[in-house]
Design a protein around this nucleic acid. Structure first.
Lengths: 212, 212
DNA sequence: GTCTATAGACAGATAGAC
DNA sequence: GTCTATCTGTCTATAGAC
């Protein structure tokens, strides 16, 4: 861990910088969540960390590059656990995620605001979301194919994948505006089960992973 | 039509003003579509109409009030025809709307960006979208109740209403980012039919109103 | 009804001191 | 690594001439 090179130890300051960067990314996530990317300011982000906006730019170079870090950060946060799941387990994991999301409106709001904002011309996160949706559709497609069986048509599976993701995203907007009016996990489960039932397949169990 | 009062005729200038206002609202819709409400500027709106941003403020007083007019305008545009439809006809109308939407990405983008932006704290369109979603859920609920029959539980109908609207909105985001990857009307129809089938009800006809 | 002029605030980004 | 200072641009809004 110690550095052979003299002077101020490079690894220590690098570690400090990494911590600072993490602080800034977290603050940026909060600000972009509340105000969107275009509406949020570096000044507000810097204020939460306790530095000036020039300090933020020192670490990330531009507001746009900071957004990319925020999105990458979310990927890492959500990643572990879902990659190895397949078939019904993966679909159940989606419902679990919908349930978990009811306890973290901040993340839901960030995702909702940024994904919608990304459809506008020239938005820096456009490619990121396009890729993310394509990957998601592919994952859900595979899960539906495994559960639905090989005799289910390719078109139905593709539409089913789009629909499952669309329900999750669309419910989030309604839920953020009126939490009492929408039951995200129950509604998602009903849609998935209806799709499977329409294909002549058994539905997911009522409560796959938890008891409540 | 002629005015008994002397001087410059009040109705003529009012008619001119109304036309100007309509021009401004249309320009505002385009700008808010591309940049969102917070990202769009009065200057860009004014430029499209060929006046200065102060001229815009003369007609509407503030940027916020202009947004309200844009939203009201969209309501009128979409309104005619759908209010009188019930049951299966209403559900078919939703699918027709999804098909129509593939030919007007501008309106779809405006709705997508503004509805998502509205979930952020203090957004001026928040109440408008909350009411709109509540009304929509109620309409879809009634249609599902009629088609599904009285023996379908209230909770299922409520979740079904949320799900149908969520699919429409969620598909729009995916479609705007990657039009070739999503078939909005076909996917919506599949979801509605799956829900009805899950409740033991006959599905909607394959092509309710058009032949292609 | 639209303009010019101007206010007053805030944006992102750069340069250079320490 | 963070600061001060500054640049350059943009924003909403008001006041008042025409």
């Amino acid at each position: 861990m110690t550095e052979p090179t003299g002077g101020t130890s490079t690894p220590r300051v690098t570690a400090r910088a990494a911590r600072r960067r993490a602080e800034i990314v977290e603050a940026a996530r909060q600000v972009f969540t509340s105000r969107g990317f275009r509406g949020g300011s570096l000044g507000e982000i810097a204020e939460r960390v306790g530095i000036t906006h020039q300090g933020v730019l020192h670490h990330f170079g531009s507001k746009e590059r900071l957004l990319v870090e925020v999105l990458r950060d979310r990927d890492i946060e959500d990643g572990p656990g879902s990659e190895t799941l397949t078939g019904a387990a993966f679909l159940s994991h989606l419902i679990d995620t919908a349930r978990l999301n009811t306890t973290r409106s901040g993340i839901v709001q960030a995702y909702t605001v940024l994904s919608a904002e990304s459809v506008t011309p020239g938005h820096p996160a456009q490619g990121w979301f396009r890729t993310r949706f394509a990957d998601l559709r592919s994952e859900v497609y595979q899960a539906l194919r495994i559960v639905g069986g090989i005799e289910v048509g390719e078109a139905e599976l593709e539409r089913g994948a789009s629909a499952v993701i669309a329900v999750m995203d669309g419910l989030q907007v309604q839920w953020l505006l009126d939490p009492a009016a929408v039951d995200m996990p129950a509604t998602l489960r009903m849609v998935i089960n209806s799709l499977l039932a329409g294909w002549g397949r058994p539905a997911l169990p009522q409560e796959p992973n938890i008891t409540a």
